[in-house]
Amino acid sequence: MRRTLFCALALALLLLAGCRGPVEDLVGDYESERLDLSPARLTLRSDGGGSLTVGAEEAPFRWEVRDEGQVVLHTRQGGVISARRGRGMLELEMPGAGKQVFRKAAK
């Protein structure tokens, strides 16, 4: 019984380690392509935290990766914004306001 439990845990750790690669790829700063408005910066940190910065104001959130590469942002008030990851980009689905594309900024 213990041996089986140990094997299951080891397998789960291996799966978590395997899933860590794509999450690391998402970490970084993203900039929006808003021509008529002031630029917005989206920051995803490796500890699961992140922030949206427009001008001098900043809105913190937490983020996670779910199945099929879907990225979910959790606001402090309990709201949820889903995003779809692409090649070097992140597309946020803003409720009632359409999609907003953020491109990863060069380091």
Binding site: S38, L52, G55, E57, T75, Q77, G79, I81, M94, G96
Partner: peptide, 19 residues
Amino acid sequence: ATNLTPALFDMMYLMRFAQ
């Protein structure tokens, strides 16, 4: 009308009402 809920207020305000 613009959708601005309390749950997403911080982020939606920055994106839509900051200007």
